[in-house]
Design a protein around this nucleic acid. Structure first.
Lengths: 332, 332
DNA sequence: GTGAAAGCGCTAACAC
DNA sequence: GTGTTAGCGCTTTCAC
């Protein structure tokens, strides 16, 4: 059996109320009493049971972060930002939703069952209607990835604008045969859709005809990048520049080019998305769009905690500035 | 105000006990009543408050996993294993300790304040004495990384044996000038110590003199791998094989070799540790020791949950089999 | 400055 | 099969 506030009170010869006051500094307690209570707490090894406290206070001081999976450096940076901003006010708990709607919903249940006070989602399969219903009753924020049609608080970069700018820069550098590597319809994320829209806009605005055979859709991982290179670069009229919606795809694309004797960046320029640590380790180093992950995390946490404190929920999208990190794979 | 079990009871015209029974299936309830209660629950959008439940039941069905940081694919795989094994019985919460003793201790406080039922640590800065004191009162397991002198339940590979075997294989392949790249004293982890011990043992057992100038100590990341290559490979009598205690170091080492015109694996063979996804993306692909991360996670969760159920804590170390994944950077 | 007591939402023992 | 009630550990009025 663990030691409770009652045990401390009895042992210290005071009431539980006094122990609670010492614990929380919620009201004046004489110095002698406080000292005595502290001594007893230490001697008994007492640690307050947060279930009792939270039940009574109607708050847990926990914020849940739901990620698709744990091992992605983008998420890692965002979480660090959330953590640093929340610092001592809240504990940050991370859970993996594995891009599964049911799992994500089960995790969001931690809001309704009062395990956490707020939730941040970094990419999700939940639909706008379900999420908005929850967001009306609980503190929820989306970070880095939106949900189409949702009015939930969202912190992200303007993906369309970023893709638009990269393609514009390719064109300014004299390229006209520009390809785009993305995911297919089964795993489409709003960010991908936006990036594709930016790509298309730039081509159109620059009077370059969109070529279906230059748009490769499959999955977002390394292997698909390899396949993309094999298929795109073996065409009779291959692209001279490629924008990939993830750095993993870009890395795979470069690898795929190596396989078939195509040189990067000489024969084809490659740009990724996200600026994960791999970009600097790869040969050639990968040019990419960087999301200000850490700042996105901080901003999200700040907005959420402000809502928590004021009781006023906030909605809508806040865009943060992206960057274009020029490395070896594309000089744009 | 959120709706409670009382509201449901009143609305359904039954007692709170009956609602609780319907919720938990803990006792027989007539079909009519159950149906009625379910209807009211749905209509009111009731969700049980776990704080009340957990307080009463003295359990939370949450397991905490403390990682040094979030974005490491080894941790990701271990956590997936833990998750799958715990499946519906427990929710897995992940928190980052950032290799900071104080942060880790604060997180372990979730055991004492009854926020979680058990904790898994994947590498920690907490000392044996402090941890063992906690492990005597709570369910704690270490996974992949031990604490020297601790008797806490630990699931890991035999790091010494693995390093020993790699070096043996280098020697069998005719190499005698074998280097070792590891971390320095400020960030030493037991796994690193064990791997160094295996390296030294193999040399000694094979009657090869240990050369201090072949042991490079700094940090465990990519940049240090580059530095290691620059310093080790520019010696007058450079090594012809290198074992690095992380894949990141191995990748950096290869990059560093490229910088100065040393060919891998022709001039020097390189082996890493952990088998992270980077190994297959790198050129050349990296030979490495693989930890059975997913199985380690499952085993850890199983052992922990068994303890939780039986109330019998378990202690000691369980070794799982490692593998040596031969790729391009070393043909051993 | 301190104590008594109510009550947060829930489960389970007991009674019927 | 169902209701009444005690109590999990804590905070917070309200008295004094």
């Amino acid at each position: 059996m663990s030691v409770t506030i009652k045990d401390v009170a009895r042992e210290a010869g005071v009431s539980v109320a006094t122990v609670s006051r010492v614990l929380n500094g919620s009201a004046a307690v004489s110095e002698d009493t406080a000292e005595n209570v502290h001594e007893v707490i230490a001697r008994l090894g007492y640690s307050p049971n947060f279930l009792g406290r939270n039940l009574r206070k109607r708050e847990t001081r926990n914020i849940l972060v739901i990620v698709p999976y744990i091992g992605h450096s983008l998420y890692s940076d965002i979480i660090k930002g959330i953590q640093d901003e929340a610092s001592n006010e809240y504990d940050i708990l991370v859970a993996a939703g594995y891009s599964t709607r049911d799992t994500e919903l089960r995790l969001l249940g931690m809001l309704t069952n009062h395990t956490v006070d707020a939730a941040v989602m970094l990419g999700t399969r939940v639909d706008a209607q379900t999420l908005d219903a929850l967001a009306d009753r609980y503190n929820i924020a989306l970070c880095s990835e939106s949900i189409e049609g949702s009015h939930a608080l969202t912190i992200m970069i303007d993906n369309k604008k970023a893709a638009y700018e990269v393609v514009n820069r390719f064109i300014a550098a004299g390229k006209t045969r520009i390809a785009f590597v993305t995911t297919d319809e089964t795993i489409i994320a709003p960010s991908s859709t936006d990036r594709l829209a930016g790509y298309l806009s730039s081509l159109t605005d620059n009077h370059i005809k969109v070529r279906e055979e230059y748009i490769f859709k499959r999955n977002y991982d390394y292997t698909c990048g390899i396949q993309a290179a094999h298929e795109l670069m073996r065409q009779s009229d291959p692209p001279e520049a490629v924008l990939c919606i993830s750095d993993l795809l870009a890395a795979g694309f470069i690898k795929g080019c190596n396989d078939i004797g195509v040189k990067v960046p000489k024969d084809v320029q490659v740009c990724g998305f996200d600026n994960i640590s791999l970009c600097e380790m790869f040969t050639p180093m990968i040019t990419t769009v960087s999301q200000p992950a850490y700042r996105m995390g901080r901003t999200t946490a700040r907005r959420l905690i402000d809502s928590l404190k004021t009781g006023m929920r906030s909605y809508g999208t806040e865009y943060l500035e992206y960057g274009i990190i020029v490395r070896e794979s594309a000089s744009i």
